[in-house]
Design a protein around this nucleic acid. Sequence first.
RNA 1: GACCCCGUCGUGUAGCCUGGUCUAGGACAAGAGCUUUUCAAGCUCUCGACACGGGUUCAAAUCCCGUCGGGGUCACCA
Length: 456
Amino acid sequence: MVRVRFAPSPTGNLHIGGGRTALFNWLYAQAKSGKFILRIEDTDQERSKQEYVEEILNSLKWLGFNWDEIYYQSKRFNIYTEYANKLLKEGRAYKEKLAERSSETIIFKVNPGKIKINDLIRQEIEFDTALIKDQVLIKSDGTPTYNFACVVDDATMDITHVIRGDDHISNTPKQVMLYEALGLAVPKFAHLPLILGMEGGRLSKRTGATAISDYRKMGYLAQALVNYLLLLSWAPGENRERIDIKEAIKLFDVSDVNKTAATFDLKKLNWFNNQYLKNEDSEKLADQIIPLLIEKNYIVKENFDGSACPPSAGSLTINPERSRRIDRQYLVSLVKLFQARLSTINDFSDWADFFFTEDITIDPKAKEKYLSSDLSREFKLFINKLDGLDKFDIDSIEESFRKLVEELGIESKALIHPIRVAITGKTIGPGLFEVIYYLGKDRTKARLLKWIERGG
RNA sequence: GACCCCGUCGUGUAGCCUGGUCUAGGACAAGAGCUUUUCAAGCUCUCGACACGGGUUCAAAUCCCGUCGGGGUCACCA
């Protein structure tokens, strides 16, 4: 049975590169009906932090990569010592005091020779072990070094395929020597190309966000990020780009992964995000958006009796300024209005802010472009039209508007843009008649009147 | 520096293994246009690559060698 593992070290957040490594491991396990094992490499007591463990676990869950087993290296120190002693007994390792006052370390004796590895992605790679110096197995503080713990763990956890970043290629001969000395079965290796930042070199904070959780916070959909990551170094064929994870599982094989390092391109991620956002179920999207609106203080959730309740519960949302109640369905409708226009979920609260607050800010440039001439007469006439409506629905609003411009003998757009700016503060947004409908007659009128009074 | 990996449009890739169908395909980005009620979306079009040099061959993006370029690793960090 295929058993793969993802082995992050909790000395930082789960970053893009780690996320991709986890993805390919998880995907391979799914493709082969194997097991995906998570191993927390927390041997460095100084730098490892519990908060990072939690952050990594949460990011993995968010991405949808659930693990079958989880291990912590910090709980396995006795196992490493046991294996090190075995090597000591067999004369493959020796003890040495490297620093004056420190305790003894256990060091592996490297024999000169050639080590060949057969990488699933890169085929044969040969190393000359004469170039590798003796390796510390157990540090003076009694904890194992990375390469040693890694070998002992992969062997004892019955890992069949080690799929990791290609920055580990040069660790591989060191590890293979250890497997051989210990008489353990060597797993198959697959070294994934690295993900580079836009300026070449490592993906760094300078070149953009690196943590998976940052992308969650910025309003990216997990599916979109996964799809994008998947296409960095792998292609499903037939020029397909958007691919469902279930389908990817059917088509994926590690040996098909590319050898070339890929550059992370935020623009393409944005495109994927927009694609997924467009097709996402509006109700689900609304559920993701609600907490963001609460955070911005645009809405509050409360119980039926009007008392406040946590964001996850409750049934009604209200606008805190006006105590105006709206229901979830209303919010879903707004989401539908903006869905295809969003690049990230977070965009919603910026683009749709005028639905949640009366205190709209009018963009100065928009004002200059569309509201520099006096349109109070036209605005008043439009208000009259709205008042005269039997039915206040999108079609009727549009119909009355078209009639008005015809009567005035002006072009639709000569009035559409000014009205949009006056009631939304923006030059961009959904169709005007939909905006008016969802804003409601009263609020639309109020905003137009406010503009007229202000001395348009 | 040594060792290792990699090298197709700006980016990500298809093609490479099994040379000819490649005047290199499609995607994102960029530019232009259509639509029009702005933006987004959608549709149409344009720009744009086999790193270079040698071989092998009737024929090379594809096979071989070299050069150059990029990246990675050289810890009692993982």
